[in-house]
Structure formats: structure tokens, C-alpha cells
């Protein structure tokens, strides 16, 4: 249940492109044709699905304050969180390069269709964003981190697929000349983002957690105040 929720949440509610505006540069630059958009989107899903869990492990066992305690009690006080940016970036860049080499070796046809996008991905801020969100939202288990990575990737894929399809069709429309290309893409993306804001009203995992905690303390409190949790749930959320 937790997985399904996080999965859909990361696709629709926290959509990388429309809610957090990450990965915009490649989204705008590589969305002229559906086929190339699909290639890049697939590569993003793939890389996110690998790097988010990997960085989760790094974060849990190396970077977090006290994470080194598995090495022995004397290491428990180390706090390496200032290295998170560098470590995450290094993992991502290494993984991208590694994937490139492996794909080239074992499946040249896939490499030909995907290959040119892989270097682009290392500089796609959606990838780093995925890892940083995973860290700051304190995702609890490795499995959830994987789900989150895949979900975010699919969200990004959907977004670039949609805009590429629209851009292919819009070539037949009579757009004012100065707006053609980049200009109209910006405006359409803005309108799509407004559309995606309506997903914000859906119940999310965060509320669920609040309710669970509330219940726990309410047992001790004797008087249970259900209305507060419902209030949070009823407040329509709009993307920040």
C-alpha cells in the first residue's frame, strides 16, 4: 500500500517537471520529436531507478550523522553530510558512464538509440533532484527509495512525452512567428503545470503518517480529537 501510494504520488502530485520544475533544460531542449523524447525519458527512468536506491544506501550508511556506527562505536559521532552533494553527483556521473559502457558492449542497437542521451542525463537536474528529495524527505526503506526513483522517472517520462506530442501537432497550427518553438513550449508547459496542480487535492502519504501518529498519542490522551486529522486531509493542497 505504502509503495503504491508513493508511486502515484511521485508520478502525479510531485511530478518532477510540473510540480518541482526540475530537469527543465533537457525537457525543453529534447522535446521536438516524440521518438527522441521517448528515448531520453526511458533513459531518465532507468538512471533514476538505479541512482536513487544507490544514493539511499550511501546516505544511510556513510553520510548521515551517526551513519558510520556500523564500523564501530568510535565512528558513531562522525557527520559527513557536508559531502552529500559531491557523493551524489559522483554516483550519478559514474553510473551514467557505467551504463553507457555496459549498454554499448552488450546491446549496440539499444546504445544507438539511447547512447546520445546518456551524457545529457548526467547534467539533468531531475536526477540529482531525485536523490536530494529522497534524502530530505527521509524515505524509510531501500524498497521505497526504489519505488520513488522509478515513480519520479515515469513522471518525467510522461511529461516529456506529452509535450513532445503537443509540439509535433502544433507545427500545423498558426502560432505567431516569434512564439514558434521555444516560446509556445514555455506557455504550454505553464498551462500543463496548472492542470497538474489539480492532482494536489488527492490524499497523499504524508497525511496517512500524520493520522497514524495522531492515533498513537490519542490513546494516551484519552480524548481523541479526530477532527484535526480530517481537517488536514480536507485542506486542498496546491503545489508550492
Amino acid at each position: 500500500m505504502e509503495h503504491i501510494e508513493l508511486f502515484f504520488k511521485s508520478i502525479f502530485i510531485d511530478n518532477m517537471v510540473f510540480a518541482t520544475f526540475l530537469g527543465m533544460c533537457s525537457y525543453l531542449a529534447v522535446s521536438k520529436k516524440v521518438t527522441t523524447a521517448v528515448g531520453l525519458g526511458a533513459a531518465v527512468i532507468f538512471v533514476l531507478a538505479i541512482t536513487v536506491p544507490l544514493n539511499w544506501l550511501l546516505d544511510q550508511f556513510i553520510l548521515q550523522p551517526g551513519a558510520l556506527s556500523w564500523l564501530g562505536a568510535e565512528y558513531a559521532d562522525y557527520d559527513l553530510s557536508f559531502l552529500s552533494f559531491i557523493m551524489f553527483i559522483a554516483t550519478i556521473a559514474t553510473m551514467v558512464q557505467l551504463v553507457e559502457i555496459i549498454v554499448e558492449k552488450f546491446s549496440p542497437s539499444l546504445y544507438n538509440s539511447l547512447g546520445i542521451f546518456l551524457p545529457l542525463i548526467a547534467v539533468n537536474c531531475a536526477i540529482l533532484g531525485g536523490s536530494l528529495f529522497m534524502q530530505s524527505r527521509e524515505i524509510a526503506t531501500l524498497g521505497l527509495a526504489t519505488t520513488y526513483g522509478i515513480g519520479s522517472g515515469i513522471g518525467w517520462f510522461l511529461a516529456i512525452l506529452a509535450i513532445a506530442a503537443i509540439r509535433e501537432k502544433i507545427r500545423y497550427s498558426n502560432v505567431p512567428a516569434p512564439l514558434r518553438g521555444l516560446g509556445i513550449t514555455f506557455i504550454i508547459t505553464g498551462l500543463m503545470a496548472i492542470g497538474f496542480m489539480s492532482f494536489g487535492g488527492m490524499l497523499t502519504g504524508g497525511d496517512e503518517e500524520g493520522e497514524a501518529l495522531e492515533d498513537k498519542s490519542a490513546q494516551i490522551e484519552t480524548v481523541q480529537d479526530k477532527s484535526t486529522t480530517n481537517e488536514i486531509a480536507n485542506n486542498t493542497k496546491v503545489i508550492d
Partner: peptide, 16 residues
Amino acid sequence: AGATITGDGVTAMIKK
């Protein structure tokens, strides 16, 4: 205005 999720975060931390 425009900061609903941050606002929800404030609500949640006060309540919890």
C-alpha cells in the same frame, strides 16, 4: 499564498 505544502508542514510539526 503559493506556499501550501510549507504551510501544511508547519501545521503538522505544531500538531505532532
